[in-house]
């Protein structure tokens, strides 16, 4: 059995690739046979993977730009990075191979609006409307005491879209990504302080993904 997680939003720059690569490292480090499929013409996920050190937990890259091809036999966790601007029809096709859909949202009014529209469209897709596929909203790049962040959370709550996770903005993600690494690659013993704060943010999201898999 494998579990597929699709990360998408219609708007660019909302941290989709960071979420996809971080999830992939969480699965890979835990020992799962993990694959990361990239649908983005810019190949940002695959580019990250190319710089990943050989000593890090292995993640198989899949180039899905042309077609949602197969995945290697025995894959236990698959993360699909779906870029902005993809036609909904295409997203719908990709959805077929996904168990959970993750939609990152940023604290800016413009972003909220396009995201709400996108979510509405998503909810109209059959397997999601029937509750067979879970959609998880992630409030991304939150900064403490930021007005827009507060506004975003209120806005989401009003729309009945309580975010599954709130990810704080951290320079750490960028630093790690440059070396092909993700948060969960950090050695908890050696890098305890930096790792712990970040991991706490991700726990609710990982738990929700795994709960969806248990259904």
């Amino acid at each position: 059995m494998s579990l597929s997680v699709l990360v998408t939003n219609t708007k660019g720059g909302c941290g989709k690739t960071t979420i996809a690569t971080t999830l992939a490292t969480a699965f890979a480090v835990a020992g799962f046979k993990t694959a990361l499929a990239d649908v983005d013409r810019q190949r940002s996920s695959l580019g990250w993977l190319a710089t990943r050190p050989a000593t890090a937990a292995p993640i198989t890259g899949l180039d899905w730009r042309k077609a949602a091809d197969s995945k290697p036999a025995g894959t236990q966790r698959l993360v699909i990075d779906v870029p902005a601007g993809l036609r909904l029809g295409h997203v719908q096709d990709l959805l077929k191979s996904a168990d959970v859909v993750i939609v990152p949202v940023l604290p800016s009014v413009f972003d909220e609006r396009s995201t709400s529209r996108f979510l509405e469209k998503l909810e109209s897709i059959k397997p999601i409307a029937r509750g067979r596929k879970r959609v998880l909203v992630v409030a991304n790049r939150l900064r403490p005491r930021q007005k827009a962040a507060q506004h975003l959370l209120e806005h989401l709550a009003e729309a009945g879209l309580e975010p599954t996770a709130r990810l704080a903005e951290r320079t750490l993600y960028g630093e790690l990504a440059m070396g092909g690494l993700g948060l969960f690659d950090l050695d908890q013993r050696r890098d305890q302080r930096r790792a712990a704060a970040g991991r706490e943010d991700w726990l609710p999201l990982l738990a929700a993904i795994e709960r969806a898999a248990a259904r």
């Binding site: 059995m1 969480a26 835990a30 020992g31 046979k33 025995g74 236990q76 991991r199 795994e210 898999a213």
Partner: peptide, 21 residues
């Protein structure tokens, strides 16, 4: 000690669990 689990079937049964959970 979750990192002692080697068999993919055992991992699959548990799902992703972080030690701190």
């Amino acid at each position: 000690e979750l990192d002692r689990i080697g068999d993919p079937a055992a991992l699959e049964a548990l799902g992703l669990v972080l030690p701190e959970e």
